[in-house]
């Protein structure tokens, strides 16, 4: 990574914030903090998408994830009254096997990616324009686009049925 380039400084700052925030997500004893730190991680990923010239995806992540999904999470946390504040029963007792698996996964994934891609640059080429994404979705990927609407409809109807309080009979 060449630190003479301004973009790399941005990347470094965003990346460190994301890793730190995601570590809080998985270790925090406070469910509310965990959910809010997920906002920071996802916000960081949106910033990375801007760096990569994917402004539309960045916008969708901010609107859908941070705007809707996280709000849903916060509702879930509050409605189910998962111990907000300090809870002792949120984690398994022994973190080391999980940590070993996670570190091994990271070593394998990151090591093999660095070994293969080396210092291949991503910023040499023109970014995709948002209109290209639109054309692509409504042309080549129109079938999954229609299918995903059924996924959302099924999730909506089914979730209402499961979550609603049944009328007494």
């Amino acid at each position: 990574m060449d630190l003479g380039v301004a973009q790399n400084w941005f990347f470094l700052v965003i990346g460190l914030v994301m890793v730190a925030a995601s570590l809080v997500v998985v270790t925090s004893r406070n469910v509310m903090h965990a959910a809010l730190m997920l906002v920071a991680t996802l916000g960081g990923s949106a910033a990375l998408f801007v760096l990569l010239g994917a402004e539309f995806v960045a916008g969708v992540v901010v609107l859908v994830y941070i705007g809707a999904v996280i709000v849903l999470f916060l509702f879930g946390v509050m409605i189910t009254r998962v111990e907000i504040g300090r809870g002792s029963s949120l984690d398994h007792a022994n973190p080391w096997p999980a940590a070993a698996i996670a570190i091994a996964t990271f070593a394998v994934l990151a090591g093999s990616a660095v070994a293969f891609f080396g210092d291949a640059e991503v910023d040499g080429v023109a970014a995709v324009r948002t209109s290209d994404i639109g054309t692509s979705i409504f042309d080549r990927f129109v079938v999954p686009f229609e299918v995903v609407s059924f996924v959302l409809l099924a999730a909506l109807i089914g979730s209402i049925v499961l979550a609603r309080k049944d009328p007494e009979s």
Binding site: V19, V26, T41, A98, T105, L109, G118, D119, V122
Partner: peptide, 25 residues
Amino acid sequence: MTLAQFLVLSAALFSIGIYGVLIRR
């Protein structure tokens, strides 16, 4: 920016996520 730096960051997030799945009850 190199491609590898993004992949390393994503590998880190993925592994942290796996840790969370394994450790959280």
